[in-house]
Write a protein that binds this DNA or RNA. Structure first.
Length: 674
DNA sequence: CGCACAATAAACACCC
DNA sequence: AGGGTGTTTATTGTGC
């Protein structure tokens, strides 16, 4: 009887218990927010600029390298072939270098971005990548244009002056042709970008190339890389038969979209492989030999060849070796691929170095003691610390005082970090009773979840959200805003790799939370019982802790944002290694869109919230969140505002891979657990 | 140090 | 009888 009326049951029983239940819990009482409409662009822009700033130089470097390589190649070829004139190349060099400088993002924009720092790490990364890609594109365009102009001028002069040696004319013609090809490549790139935009992967605003937040950036990387690889492969194949043009074009296209100069380099050199090999080759050979040595790894795993873009299935190691020798022998294609990989690695290293520097500077500036300790212990901490620092920097000075708390060990960071790194190996940790330290996690914003959706799906990282938040999220995501217990379980397993283990533990926790918290109402149904969320109750809770200072809230938001990105980054790397595709693919959209909106919401909401804070009206942020920032965890700042949005995101993102929801719940869980 | 909160564990009850 | 569901209690870790 009691059971039938869910509400009753709860009110009677649960409230009673420890007393804790009755009060407000930190729970996530998130609120529904909807303020995503505005501000997105701005936020995104800011972040982008910031990133751009750091990485612009990297991109420039890469671009320069590429250009130089190209030039070298040209020169080389020129030397070999009587057709070429040395004069022209000489002129070109300076031009190219000079051209590199143009900035996609204006200093002003950068400043704005830096000041506001609204963006999350993910966003920043995306922005950076975009920036890089864009910058490269722009630079290349400019470079080529200039070259073209020069050539034209030369041609004109030649014509004017009279007849010149045929050689020169030929050279000029060739160069023109070459440039035209380059231009075509650029066009293709642009088209690619456009298509991406259409697909929703990219959001580039016409007016502001630099600003565009891209959803993809992060997500794109892996996918793009793979595509790139594949294209390279195919391109080269084609190249062999046809010619350089094709391959180069394709490559370019891909490269641009993805981001990186590194890719560009590939593109640039495809045909150069012959010439360029000299320098490039070494690494490649090394890698090859490496492969031979190491039986286990790098290129072989799970019965699949891990050579970029290959994915060939190899029954055993022997067959793999065979495959490796036959398919990935020392040829142009492999060389080019190695080159790409090198570039990628370089890029990453550069980025890492820069980010480290930045972190240091931030920490120094903020005198953050707390962060320090963290960083030391765990590798990942870098991320977290970074996040922190960033957020801190963002936060107004006032907030800082509070921030000190940050040191707390952010559960999230910890969990995530390790998880990310060891994801595969570490899962074991899960079962253990550790609660993520952050109590504050409480409120989850749908956006948060959505942002890292792919990440959590694939990585067995404990989500930084409370059970209550997650349950609420699950229920709100459902079309009817109600779920059976089993459906809730399914949602957990589907959305979080972490919950594919230790089923007994977390399922018990879910049930416990459902019963304990007033905000969850059990409703008798024909089939049985379903659980719904009482938003009012939900809201009641959050006020508690966060009595917040606006500054805190702000900090939280910022920190939060940063954390997320980090995850994304990790994810990206992870994706590359093992779980390449879907991560990327699915992530792109949600991440960006959500991030942007989420961030804005948070920001906007935070401020507002402060005012109306406790009032029910603003479901958005929970005070808790505000607190969180300090901790640096990635907690979800938002109060779940978003259930709506979240659900949208979530659903939208679905990667085919994960559709087999139920599969997890029972199977994996059982396996692991019991 | 104590409080509040959340996670975890477990016992128990009920129902199918 | 056994599993799923729901409730309740106790313990523990963490942040403030």
């Amino acid at each position: 009887m009691m059971q039938e009326s869910g509400t009753e049951t709860k009110s009677n029983g649960s409230a009673i218990q420890n007393g804790s239940s009755g009060g407000n819990h930190l729970l996530e009482c998130g609120s529904l927010r909807e303020g995503r409409s505005n501000g997105e662009a701005a936020a995104g822009d800011v972040g982008a600029a910031d990133l751009a700033h750091v990485q612009q130089q990297q991109a420039l470097q890469v671009a320069r390298q590429l250009l130089l390589q190209q030039q070298q190649q040209q020169q080389v070829s020129g030397l070999k072939s009587p057709k070429r004139n040395d004069k022209q190349p000489a002129l070109q060099v300076p031009v190219s270098v000079a051209m590199m400088t143009p900035q996609v993002i204006t200093p002003q924009q950068m400043q704005q971005i830096l000041q506001q720092q609204v963006l999350s790490p993910q966003q920043l990364q995306v922005l950076l990548q975009q920036q890089q890609a864009l910058m490269l594109q722009q630079q290349l365009q400019e470079f080529y244009k200039k070259q073209q102009e020069q050539l034209q001028l030369q041609l004109l002069q030649q014509q004017h002056a009279g007849k010149q040696p045929k050689e020169q004319q030929q050279v000029a013609t060739q160069q023109l042709a070459f440039q035209q090809q380059l231009l075509q490549m650029q066009q293709l790139q642009q088209q690619h970008l456009l298509s991406l935009q259409r697909q929703g992967l990219l959001t580039i605003q016409p007016g502001q190339p630099a600003l565009p937040l891209q959803p993809l950036a992060q997500g794109m990387i892996p996918t793009e890389l793979q595509q790139l690889w594949k294209e390279v492969t195919s391109a080269h194949t084609a190249e062999e038969t046809t010619g350089n043009n094709h391959s180069s074009l394709d490559l370019t296209t891909t490269c641009v979209s993805s981001s990186a100069p590194s890719k560009t380099s590939l593109i640039m050199n495809p045909h150069a492989s012959t010439n360029g090999q000299l320098s490039v080759h070494t690494p490649k050979r090394e890698s090859l030999s490496h492969e031979e040595h190491s039986h286990s790894h790098p290129l072989y795993g799970h019965g699949v060849c891990k050579w970029p873009g290959c994915e060939a299935v190899c029954e055993d190691f022997q067959s793999f070796l065979k495959h490796l020798n036959s398919e990935h022998a020392l040829d142009d294609r492999s060389t080019a691929q190695c080159r790409v990989q090198m570039q990628v690695v370089q890029q990453l290293e550069l980025q890492l170095a820069k980010d480290k520097e930045r972190l240091q500077a931030m920490m120094t500036h903020l005198h953050v003691k707390s962060t320090e300790p963290k960083a030391a212990p765990q590798p990942l901490n870098l991320v977290s610390s970074v996040t922190l620092s960033k957020s801190a920097s963002e936060a107004s000075p006032q907030s800082l005082p509070h921030t000190p708390t940050t040191p707390t060990a952010p559960i999230t960071p910890v969990t995530q970090g390790p998880s990310v790194i060891t994801t595969t190996s570490m899962h074991t940790v899960g079962p253990i009773r550790r609660r993520y330290s952050d109590k504050y996690n409480v409120p989850i914003s749908s956006a948060d979840i959505a942002q890292n959706q792919e990440f959590y799906k694939n990585a067995e990282v404990r989500p930084p959200f409370t059970y209550a938040s997650l349950i609420r999220q699950a229920i709100l995501e459902s079309p009817e805003k109600q779920l059976t217990l089993n459906e809730i379980y399914n949602w957990f397993t589907r959305m979080f790799a972490y919950f594919r283990r230790n089923a007994a533990t977390w399922k018990n926790a879910v049930r416990h939370n459902l019963s304990l918290h007033k905000c969850f109402v059990r409703v008798e149904n024909v089939k049985g019982a379903v659980w719904t969320v009482d938003e009012v109750e939900f809201q009641k809770r959050r006020p508690q802790k966060i009595s917040g200072n606006p500054s805190l809230i702000k900090n939280m938001q910022s920190s939060h944002a940063y954390c997320t990105p980090l995850n994304a980054a990790l994810q990206a790397s992870m994706a590359e290694n093992s779980i390449p595709l879907y991560t990327t693919a699915s992530m792109g959209n949600p991440t960006l869109g959500n991030l942007a909106s989420a961030i804005r919401e948070e920001l906007n909401g935070a401020m507002e919230h402060t005012n109306s804070n406790e009032s029910d009206s603003s479901p958005g942020r929970s005070p808790m969140q505000a607190v969180h920032p300090v901790h640096v965890k990635e907690e979800p700042l938002d109060p779940e505002e978003a259930e709506g949005p979240l659900s949208l995101v979530t659903t939208a993102n679905h990667s085919p891979d994960f559709d087999h929801d139920r599969d997890y719940e029972d199977e994996p869980v059982n396996e692991d657990m019991e």
